Amino acid sequence: MNYTTIDHQEILQRYRPVVATTHKGIQGHALLVGGSYGKMGSVCLSSKAAIKSGCGLVTTFVPQCGYDIAQIAIPEVMVLTDVQVHCISAIHFDIVPDAIGIGPGLGQDPSTQQGLYNFLKSNRIPLVVDADALNILSLYPDWLALLPPKTIITPHWKELERLIGRWDSEEEHLEKTMAFSKQHQLIVVMKGAPTRIIDGDLVYQNTTGNAALATAGSGDVLTGMITSLLAQSYEPINAALLGVYLHGLTADIALPETGYQSFIASDIISYLGKAFLTLE
């Protein structure tokens, strides 16, 4: 096992400052797929986090019931809709994104499960998989073979348990996750305190973040951030590490102003600018 601590100096070696002559057409195009009736907030958080993490263009793909919500909540983001009103069933789009994040608020409707399978069968675009997309994959583990190599998955502990089975110790937890990562060629972001990122035999432990991040929507924001960085042509492992580091750093910066209790997922997005400035 090769173990690395992800701190400020380590991130500076991986971070790429924005070039002064850049424009939105070369800053990456991220697609966020998610949402279902009553769960549109998740994909809205992901999409806003993506545009706030430096992506030149962001498109969100939602069921028809989410069209007005997404257009109003995030005017900077373009919106595509499924043929279904209340859930996603057929992920078809005529754009060419540089990275796709899928899962926030997706739900597990049977038509959504079939839609996910059809999408994975044909997709070759770099991918971040979270939330209900992971829960569906845990129901159909054979589908993991459809994921492109170095796909990033971002499970919390319960989602990870559904994928790899239960563990009895921290050591077994890590060993099973590493074996899972190697078997399927996946980068696993093990969300927690601390968050660890697993890439086969490589284990990275993040140093930022605090208990304020234990709030609804925090993971959806992280998915949008990592998808954005992946779309900006960061290597998958660097997109995961930089996303996790900055995500945690926002809570560290905000804590003196918000305290633990009043920090919400939208605050992660609000403090992203200050987090990025620490790298300049």
Rank of each mutant, 00 (worst) to 15 (best):
204 Y>S: 08
206 N>K: 02
224 G>T: 09
197 I>S: 06
232 Q>D: 09
215 T>V: 15
209 G>P: 08
187 I>N: 00
213 L>A: 13
192 G>T: 00
190 M>W: 07
198 I>D: 03
234 Y>A: 07
189 V>C: 02
234 Y>P: 10
202 L>G: 13
205 Q>W: 01
201 D>K: 15
188 V>E: 01
203 V>M: 08
220 D>M: 08
205 Q>Y: 10
194 P>T: 02
201 D>V: 12
200 G>Q: 03
217 G>M: 09
197 I>K: 01
197 I>L: 03
200 G>A: 01
216 A>R: 02
231 A>K: 12
227 T>W: 11
211 A>D: 12
209 G>V: 04
211 A>N: 14
214 A>K: 10
195 T>V: 07
216 A>K: 00
214 A>Y: 12
230 L>R: 10
200 G>D: 01
221 V>H: 03
204 Y>A: 07
229 L>A: 10
219 G>L: 11
231 A>P: 13
226 I>W: 03
205 Q>N: 09
235 E>F: 15
231 A>I: 08
211 A>R: 14
231 A>H: 12
213 L>T: 08
223 T>F: 05
228 S>L: 08
206 N>T: 05
194 P>A: 07
196 R>S: 09
190 M>E: 00
214 A>N: 09
195 T>D: 04
229 L>C: 09
196 R>P: 00
194 P>R: 00
190 M>C: 15
215 T>Y: 02
210 N>E: 08
225 M>C: 02
207 T>A: 03
187 I>E: 02
218 S>Q: 08
230 L>V: 11
192 G>W: 05
199 D>S: 15
224 G>M: 10
188 V>F: 05
230 L>P: 13
206 N>C: 12
198 I>G: 04
229 L>M: 11
224 G>L: 05
226 I>N: 01
215 T>C: 15
232 Q>E: 10
202 L>D: 07
188 V>P: 06
200 G>P: 07
192 G>N: 01
194 P>F: 03
212 A>Q: 09
198 I>M: 04
233 S>E: 12
204 Y>M: 01
227 T>H: 12
187 I>C: 14
206 N>V: 01
232 Q>I: 08
201 D>T: 14
215 T>R: 12
218 S>N: 06
196 R>I: 03
207 T>E: 02
229 L>H: 10
192 G>P: 04
195 T>H: 00
193 A>N: 09
188 V>G: 00
223 T>Q: 10
203 V>H: 13
199 D>H: 14
209 G>K: 00
192 G>K: 01
229 L>E: 06
189 V>W: 04
201 D>N: 15
235 E>K: 14
219 G>V: 07
198 I>H: 04
191 K>W: 02
224 G>H: 05
202 L>N: 12
209 G>W: 02
224 G>V: 08
204 Y>R: 05
193 A>D: 13
231 A>G: 15
212 A>R: 05
196 R>N: 06
193 A>W: 08
221 V>L: 06
204 Y>D: 00
196 R>C: 06
213 L>P: 15
233 S>I: 00
199 D>M: 12
219 G>S: 06
